[in-house]
């Protein structure tokens, strides 16, 4: 789990990465007003090479954020509007019979998935068959069609959106597919001040002008640096205990949980923590990094039982309780000692 300290990042690399990421975040701030936390999570998710599921009501700027991200990173982005009649081939591509050098052969016609960023809008409106076509692409970063395997561009991210209302005629994502998303982020509505700013600086039908902040190579370099961020053993231990505690009977917080998080969740936590570490200019991941990304990483990977759901429990609430229950150090404090966060 933990990378070698010898592969640590130099001070110059950290300063440069931190500056680049700050520029990126500031630019995205001009795309989506008042959602700094959401933007940070999305950037961290992308840095961790993860796929992100954005859930929120229509009109909150989800699609705009993804388009802005693709533009600022200088990456190739495609958008697919998922509908019930969308077929897998419409995304991955289809073999088409063509004349090639006087011969009629099937030539694979690449679908929209062959891009650095795939914006899967309203992903829950597509049929399960189409949704599952994304599985291999998301996990293996390749597509198999007509017996041939086609590698997807590097980097490759799926940024999907879904609408929590108008559930009629939708197909909720299966757990297996949910597990492949690094983050599930809820996009919340804006405050009054933010709405005022939007009214003053935006017009309907006019996309915001976004400057390119990073080249594709610079961004790929950042991705490589994230991999070199060190996860200390104590932090890895904390991640393991946290993920283990999501399972029924492993902690008090997991009461009402039917299924806990998978090992993939632990890997996702570590990757996201490393990305956050780099974003804050550190060569290592910290406990605070893990805690900051725990909710978007774990909440959609925990399945509650019916009783807990009837009682109004939420997976996000379970994660919050877990963070309060599981101490960062391996051994619990004596019961008569209380520790206070001092900062």
């Amino acid at each position: 789990m933990s990378s070698s300290p010898t592969a640590g990042l130099s001070e110059a690399e950290l300063v440069s990465a931190s500056a680049s990421l700050n520029r990126l975040l500031d630019t995205l701030d001009t795309v989506l007003f008042g959602q700094r936390e959401l933007i940070e999570l999305v950037v961290i998710g992308v840095l961790a090479r993860g796929h992100i599921l954005l859930e929120g009501l229509p009109g909150l700027g989800k699609t705009e954020l993804v388009k802005g991200l693709a533009h600022t990173l200088g990456l190739d982005a495609r958008r697919v509007q998922f509908t019930p009649d969308l077929l897998p081939g419409d995304i991955t591509g289809n073999p088409i019979l063509q004349d090639v050098d006087g011969e009629r052969r099937f030539v694979f016609q690449r679908g929209p998935i062959f891009a650095n960023i795939l914006l899967a809008d309203e992903i829950n409106r597509a049929s399960p068959k189409t949704q599952s076509a994304l599985l291999e692409a998301m996990q293996e970063r390749r597509v198999t069609a007509g017996g041939d395997t086609h590698a997807l561009p590097d980097p490759f991210f799926v940024l999907a959106t879904q609408n929590p209302i108008e559930l009629e005629g939708t197909y909720p994502l299966p757990e297996a597919q949910l597990d492949r998303f690094l983050f599930k982020v809820e996009v919340t509505r804006n405050a009054t001040e933010v709405l005022q700013r939007i009214v003053l600086h935006r017009e309907i039908g006019a996309s915001p002008v976004v400057a390119r902040v990073l080249t594709a190579e610079e961004f790929t370099g950042l991705l490589a640096q994230v991999r070199r961020v060190h996860v200390p053993e104590v932090v890895a231990n904390y991640i393991a205990r946290l993920v283990n505690a999501t399972h029924p009977g492993e902690s008090a917080a997991s009461a009402g949980v039917r299924f806990g998080a998978s090992p993939r969740a632990a890997l996702a936590l570590a990757a996201a923590a490393k990305a956050r570490g780099l974003r804050h200019g550190r060569p290592h991941a910290s406990f605070e990094d893990v805690q900051a990304v725990a909710r978007p990483v774990l909440a959609h990977r925990i399945l509650l039982d019916h009783g807990a759901r009837l009682d109004g429990a939420t997976t996000a609430g379970v994660v919050d309780k877990l963070l309060a229950e599981i101490a960062v150090q391996a051994k619990p404090l004596p019961s008569s000692l209380a520790a206070a966060k001092i900062s």
Binding site: H230, P232, V234, V235, H280, R282, P283, H284, A285, S286, F287, E288, D289, V328, Q329, A339, A340, K341, I342, S343
Partner: peptide, 11 residues
């Protein structure tokens, strides 16, 4: 953790 040092002592 209590001092909010972002694991700098460990690092």
């Amino acid at each position: 953790y209590r001092l909010g040092l972002d694991s700098r002592l460990t690092a």
